[in-house]
């Protein structure tokens, strides 16, 4: 792991002047990932989404490394092509340097529309690190539900109304879907845990083959909280067990942080207005309990995996 002093000496990959929202989790995520990768020569592919749009408005770009945007659903395929070109040119002696390849996609570009492209790239074994910045909905188009949106969260296409209390389904577990590809390194981390995040990115970049890190990335606009609370929300997601920090290294599970005592999920929910309807006008105990139970179930399963697959 690198200290903050060491990191502060590194050349970052993304600079100021981008147009992500004030307090944007993706801005923090991208800076930390690129600092973690700062000791390497990297090439980045980015899926359509907030990060892509807000950082590359013509004729400006916040990226200080070679960077390509192709479309929404194909960041993994695009980086496959870049990496293969590198492999071919390197084999022919046309390029000498050692390069690393990174792809960024939001949850929409990863869990939903880009899932096939990601799966294909993972199966083919390209040497790249895929970063999913998961902000739990289509934020770039104006907060529509994705398969990463948690149950009962209100979005513009899963609003709460007289008869429906926000999104009706639990979220998809993409980290486990990726892990099922038996790639060498899979991890979950969160904005709010720079050390965990940077350590995982640095670790992943040392591994050959496909790597995947799913980063919990709070969105002040879509989750409806004050912009200064971004880190706090990331921390509450982890402290409540809603978003476990863990990694799967060559099939072995390791939970990187186990809260002494998990906080009730309510603490995570009630500071985000997307869950307002669970508390107002009256408290919907059953629904909150359902979310709580689901966390317990997920956590128990994860602990079992850690125990059995170690």
């Amino acid at each position: 792991m690198s200290s903050l002093k060491e990191l502060s000496q590194r050349k970052g990959g993304i600079t100021s002047g981008h147009r992500l929202c004030s307090g944007c989790g993706a801005g923090i995520m991208a800076r930390q990932v690129m600092l973690a990768a700062g000791n390497y020569k990297v090439v980045v592919a980015c899926a359509t989404g907030c990060l892509e749009v807000a950082t590359t408005i013509y004729p400006y770009s916040a990226w200080k490394v070679p960077w390509i945007h192709n479309a929404f659903e194909n960041a993994a395929a695009t980086i496959s092509g870049v990496e293969t070109a590198y492999k071919s040119l390197k084999k022919q002696g046309k390029i000498k340097k050692d390069l690393k390849f990174l792809a960024f996609g939001g949850d929409g570009g990863t869990y939903d529309i880009g899932l096939q492209s990601l799966s294909g790239a993972l199966e083919r074994g390209h040497d790249f690190l895929y970063i999913c910045y998961d902000n739990e909905a289509y934020m770039n188009t104006g907060i529509q539900r994705s398969s990463a949106t948690p149950k009962y969260a209100a979005t513009t296409t899963s609003p709460y109304g007289e008869v429906i209390s926000g999104k009706r389904e639990f979220r998809k577990n993409i980290t486990e879907i990726v892990a099922a590809h038996n790639i060498p390194y899979v991890a979950q981390t969160a904005v709010g845990y720079w050390n965990d995040l940077v350590t995982k990115v640095e670790k992943a970049l040392e591994v050959k083959g496909p790597k995947f890190i799913n980063i919990f990335t709070p969105c002040q606009l879509g989750w409806k909280y004050g912009p200064e609370k971004t880190l706090e929300i990331g921390k509450l997601a982890v402290e409540t067990g809603f978003w476990p920090l863990y990694e799967v290294e060559n099939g072995k599970y390791k939970i990187n942080y186990k809260p002494q005592e998990k906080k009730p999920v309510e603490e995570f929910l009630k500071i985000q207005k997307r869950f307002n309807h669970l508390f107002k006008p009256e408290r919907k105990e059953k629904l909150i309990q359902e979310i709580q139970d689901n966390i317990e179930k997920g956590w128990t399963e994860l602990e079992k995996k850690e125990k059995c697959l170690n």
Binding site: V43, A45, I68, N70, A71, E73, N74, A77, T78, I79, S80, G81, V82, E83, T84, A85, Y86, K87, S88, L89, K91, Q116, S117, S119, G120, A121, E123, R124
Partner: peptide, 24 residues
């Protein structure tokens, strides 16, 4: 030649975009 057996035509052409942008 390096051959990428893509998982769809959409990905095949997407790979081509990445590869061509990389100077191959």
């Amino acid at each position: 030649t390096e051959f990428i057996p893509a998982e769809s035509e959409h990905s095949a052409i997407s790979c081509c975009v990445g590869s061509s942008a990389a100077g191959a």
